[in-house]
Nucleic acid binder design. Sequence first.
DNA 1: CTGTTAGCGCTTTCAT
DNA 2: ATGAAAGCGCTAACAG
Lengths: 337, 337
Amino acid sequence: MSTTNLKQLAQALDLSVSTVSRALNDSYEISASTKLKVQTLAAQLGYQPNPYASSLRRQQSKTVGVVIPEVANNFFSLAINGIEEVARQNGYHVLVYLTHEEFEQEQVIIRHLANGRVDGILISVSGETRDAAHFAKLRELKLPTVFFDRVCEQTDTASITTDDYDSGYRATHHLLERGCRRIVHFTLAQHLSIGQKRMQGYLDALRDADIAFDPTLLVHGGSGPDYNTALMQQLLEQDSSIDGIFAAVESLAIASYRGCRATVRRIPDDVKIIGFSNLEMADLLDPSLTTIRQPAYAIGREAATILFQALIRNRSILTSQSQELKSELVVRASTGG
Amino acid sequence: MSTTNLKQLAQALDLSVSTVSRALNDSYEISASTKLKVQTLAAQLGYQPNPYASSLRRQQSKTVGVVIPEVANNFFSLAINGIEEVARQNGYHVLVYLTHEEFEQEQVIIRHLANGRVDGILISVSGETRDAAHFAKLRELKLPTVFFDRVCEQTDTASITTDDYDSGYRATHHLLERGCRRIVHFTLAQHLSIGQKRMQGYLDALRDADIAFDPTLLVHGGSGPDYNTALMQQLLEQDSSIDGIFAAVESLAIASYRGCRATVRRIPDDVKIIGFSNLEMADLLDPSLTTIRQPAYAIGREAATILFQALIRNRSILTSQSQELKSELVVRASTGG
DNA sequence: CTGTTAGCGCTTTCAT
DNA sequence: ATGAAAGCGCTAACAG
């Protein structure tokens, strides 16, 4: 729709379309003088190449797709920031798609992306995702894909994660150290590897402390903050032996905090809470909330960087290029810190 | 890149490319039987039309651009959610661009978007933006544009805002009602209409309460939360007469809260704070924070809806289709509520 | 109802 | 160093 195109430039300069094209692409086989003329006029007329014509011809879109569960969440917001930044630096555009944590949406999106619309994909899988069949298609097409944060174990592609097992272990250990003996593990998406790793960290920390694991303390959150808050409140009221909560995602950390407040039990004296969270304000709460903070921005940047390396170099599938970044345990008052 | 294309389908079915194309587009001039055959095979082979070929030919991209200052912010995250949802419902794709509050980035992005890459634009202008020249180009191209939240007054396009004057007035009035007499107005981007309106509400509320306006209480925030926190802390320590703070954006509300905590002065007894914010956790703070909450998700949806109406109907420029949504004043402890 | 043809705007051989 | 021509994959006249 940019009103000027190559043909017009060519006519105005009495040159062929191909010469103009080459001049604009700074081809070595064009004389400096013509280049200058062409580029000057182009700038003057505000010429912008039609990206779709160019994509069609070149068979590449200079666009990446970012598929995430939800953007109304601190972690993904920060990750997008990182991704967009790297993308722009590399001259790429960013298409954003939300799955709303639904597996079906994820499938539809992936299918729609497997048609040349994007040169690569950055994805954090939905909480419902169990089956990796839809990702096979991406491999077939040799569409470079990088999983970040919530990866899909079945397929072996590149991925950027955090030290989920380790931080799960540390979080639990931290609570044990502070005297907790009956620690709830509050989780969503327990069938995702990220959830399993965090839980495994929890289990192993208990085991190492010679504390028997009580399955009733494994609580699966549901949908909606109100539901989760109520769930935790109820749980605390029913079982007065609970003295710690380890929330595996931000929304559950908040729900735990709220749920606990709704009871007579006090944080941190009666119940200590620790949660994965990138909330900037965790320190402003009273009691302030101990968190495991993931380097969200860095994750976005790293994932994008890996993807662009592949895109710029060889356009190949990425395989087992995994990287694990460190989360940070920020101790605060909610665990008696 | 989708390995199958129209030509292959056509050959396999011994039909012409155009027939196949029409069948897939469910054209009325194709027999039910061929449609079925074509669509069956297409589904079987997982055919996905090449979007760029189609965009090139149709002269429309089924894509909208969203240009925002920053996504690591509750308001814009929610807005994107709303936008993406409406976009998907209408079969559109969403390209996201961040200006990082820089005017120059904004110009570059707009220029890059004015080439047919997108059929429409949703934008919230950067804090630095003073000049609207780059938007003129969009009008020339008749590229439908909807401003949301931070609009550009100079141009008369469609826009979705909130009741900024009114909520500024109410916020200030609320503080006055609670006995404040020396209210700091803490703002960013005071040259944006959104900032001016909020400030005008502040000024008028003071005037209506017969309180003289003290220019030293008009404080312009800078970049970075730490800077703003320090600024507010310093201010409170220097001027012990300050008894209220009205923060015009979320980041400044947090900075005010933090800054105040860093002094000996207490919230809300010594200083009352109210701020624009979409923080979900404002109620969990202690004292909990009184906020003016914008309907961010609805703003995103509304803006997108207006845009898509234009796109689907007539592809015309949108002019003076403005709409103002209501913000909600949520009274909490930080103002003695 | 189906096929033939032209062409969206650009890049890229291949020729000169 | 420049031009002519083909074609990326699709859609839309225009025939029939």
